[in-house]
Design a protein around this nucleic acid. Sequence first.
DNA 1: CAGCTATGTAAGATGTTGCTTACGCAGGTG
DNA 2: CACCTGCGTAAGCAACATCTTACATAGCTG
Lengths: 116, 116
Amino acid sequence: MDGTLRALADPTRRAILRLVHDDELAAGEIARHFPAMSRPAVSQHLRVLADAGLVVIRPAGNLRLYRWRPEGLSDVTAFLAQMWSGRLAALKTAAEREEWPARERAKLRGSGEARD
Amino acid sequence: MDGTLRALADPTRRAILRLVHDDELAAGEIARHFPAMSRPAVSQHLRVLADAGLVVIRPAGNLRLYRWRPEGLSDVTAFLAQMWSGRLAALKTAAEREEWPARERAKLRGSGEARD
DNA sequence: CAGCTATGTAAGATGTTGCTTACGCAGGTG
DNA sequence: CACCTGCGTAAGCAACATCTTACATAGCTG
């Protein structure tokens, strides 16, 4: 859980994750997508992703092929689901008990214009 | 996006987020749930959460009440959705073109026992 | 207004991250 | 076997994150 979110917190690692999302790529080929940084740096990012279970490694001859591992995201997905589901429950209870003043509920609804 | 995941990467901040998930709590009351660390430390965590848009602050007299802000998670949710949706698309294309050897597809399915 | 409470901010110590260069090693190729 | 290619690891360094203690500030309360 902790390692997963820490791994995802880095933009380079998210970019790598998108790269190996559809295709299975060799480490060097992945590194070639990041000309701004050295190849060992990318290798270290790949290690973090592998430790977090977000990618799988398949050795193929001289190469090491990386592919996205969907189950690696399961705990983050679970965390989000827990957040959202609990949220609905809280809204329901609050509405039933009418614990909040009306203007508070209105403000809460109003702030949810983006995605609620 | 970046700030959100960085904010979520810390276990203390996730705990805070769960605390203010249902109730609206004052900073001091939140800090009281973390006897192992000082009150300013919690205050700084609250700042990170607020900067990431994951909580909203409502000043009430002498207090500062914190509440979870659901929309703050929207970009993370979008990231996950993009991952999963693209994943389904990739599976579909691969299955149609039969690009992978059968044992590869079996291995992929087999590793998804946790949550797929 | 004096003083108390609740809270944020500043400064600094310490651990952690993310890079670099240099090196080691496995695996294919002549 | 000698050698090249592809990759990971080690060591070192600069930047950043996370604590601490000390201090500043806003708002009640008598």
